[in-house]
Simulated scan of single mutants.
Amino acid sequence: MTRRSRLETLVRDALCALAAIGIPLDGVTERRRVRMAKAFLSVAGMKPGMDWSEASADNRLRSRDVIRWMNQYLGEEISSGSYDDIRRKDLLLPVEAGIVLKSAGKVGAATNDGTRRYALSSEAATLLRSYRSPDWDVRLAQFLAGKEKLADQLKKTRLQGLIPITVGSSVLRFGPGEHNELQKAIIEDFLPRFGYVAEVLYVGDTEEKLLFVQANRLMGLGFFELSHNKLPDVLAYSGSKNWLFLIEAVHSANPITELRKRVLEQLTKECSADIIYVSAFLSRAAFRKFAREIAWETEVWIAESPDHLIHFNGDKFLGPHVSGNTR
């Protein structure tokens, strides 16, 4: 086996061990994974050709020492000035998981303390020495017993930051941010007040655009274009009025302007329902930024004043506008 193949095997083993211990690798680029594995191997004192039984908790390295180890033994050519990347990126997750100690021998050392060293925890070193041995599975189970994996901790933290939105009998969870907070207000505050028992047929999320869609119901109304880059943020249908609400949640862009209205009119030209266009804002201050752009014959709703609507001209307050005809 060549040195290169031995190195590739060692890196692959390190990533497998890290994943088994609970380090989240989903969404991490391939290059970042390799850097993490090599920084981890450096702290463990591992070189190509060594057996995992030689993993050590005594290889205490400064950030610059980790770079030297990676360059000398693990095939890297990293600038000595990149030491901050070791702390902020390469060893961040192993440290957060508690398998690498960031102040070995000097607990509580400041980040800029020149005597600060990285090292494997003794428990992690004992576990790694069993890697590729018949004892690995048993030792891994013992190591994880009573612990919550970092991947699960981060997932829980992310879920806690999500915004719950009730859609019918379902509760959807949207990514954090003012745009999605506004969508929550549209669904839970605007529609109950002005929607005439409207049913939500589509709602998007800034991270996952097609978060909720009732495609069959929309197609039954003659709404055939479901390309998410053309849809407004929320679609809701009132059966009692035969109104389809097209609602834009305006945070930093995209109110219903004359141009946007023309696009939506083309999108709904075969729709059997009458169309209500709504631009929604979190606050009056946000609305003022876009007031000059709002299209005529559309509605404006402001979440901080949920009981009121602003109608931009036309022959009636809330309702579909038909040119030359008053209903």
Score class of each variant (00 low, 15 high):
Leu162Met: 15
Leu162Ser: 14
Ile163Trp: 08
Ile163Lys: 09
Ile163Asp: 13
Pro164Trp: 11
Ile165Tyr: 03
Ile165Cys: 09
Ile165Asn: 02
Thr166Leu: 13
Val167Trp: 01
Ser169Gly: 11
Ser169Pro: 00
Ser169Arg: 06
Ser170Ala: 14
Ser170Leu: 09
Val171Asp: 00
Val171Pro: 00
Leu172Tyr: 06
Arg173Cys: 02
Gly175Pro: 00
Pro176Gln: 08
Gly177Met: 06
Gly177Ala: 09
Glu178His: 14
Glu178Pro: 11
Glu178Asn: 15
His179Thr: 13
His179Val: 07
His179Ile: 12
Asn180Trp: 05
Asn180Pro: 00
Asn180Phe: 05
Asn180His: 04
Glu181Phe: 05
Leu182Ile: 10
Gln183Asn: 09
Gln183Met: 14
Ala185Cys: 12
Ile187Arg: 01
Glu188Trp: 09
Glu188Leu: 11
Glu188Gln: 15
Glu188Pro: 15
Asp189His: 09
Phe190Lys: 02
Leu191Ser: 12
Leu191Asn: 13
Leu191Met: 12
Pro192Ile: 06
Pro192Ser: 07
Pro192Met: 07
Pro192Gly: 06
Arg193Thr: 13
Phe194Trp: 10
Phe194Cys: 12
Val197Pro: 01
Ala198Glu: 02
Glu199Gln: 14
Glu199Cys: 04
Val200Tyr: 02
Val200Asn: 05
Leu201Tyr: 03
Tyr202Ile: 07
Val203Met: 11
Val203Ser: 12
Val203Glu: 07
Val203Arg: 04
Asp205Lys: 09
Thr206Ser: 15
Thr206Met: 13
Glu208Thr: 14
Glu208Met: 10
Glu208Trp: 04
Leu210Cys: 04
Leu211Tyr: 02
Leu211Cys: 10
Phe212Asp: 02
Val213Arg: 04
Val213Phe: 01
Val213His: 05
Gln214Arg: 15
Gln214Trp: 01
Gln214Val: 03
Ala215Trp: 04
Ala215Asp: 11
Asn216Gln: 09
Arg217Gln: 04
Arg217Leu: 04
Arg217Cys: 01
Leu218Gln: 09
Leu218Pro: 08
Leu218Arg: 11
Leu221Val: 04
Leu221Asn: 06
Gly222Asn: 04
Gly222Leu: 04
Gly222His: 06
Phe223Ala: 03
Phe224Trp: 01
Glu225Cys: 08
Asn229Ser: 08
Asn229Met: 02
Asn229Phe: 06
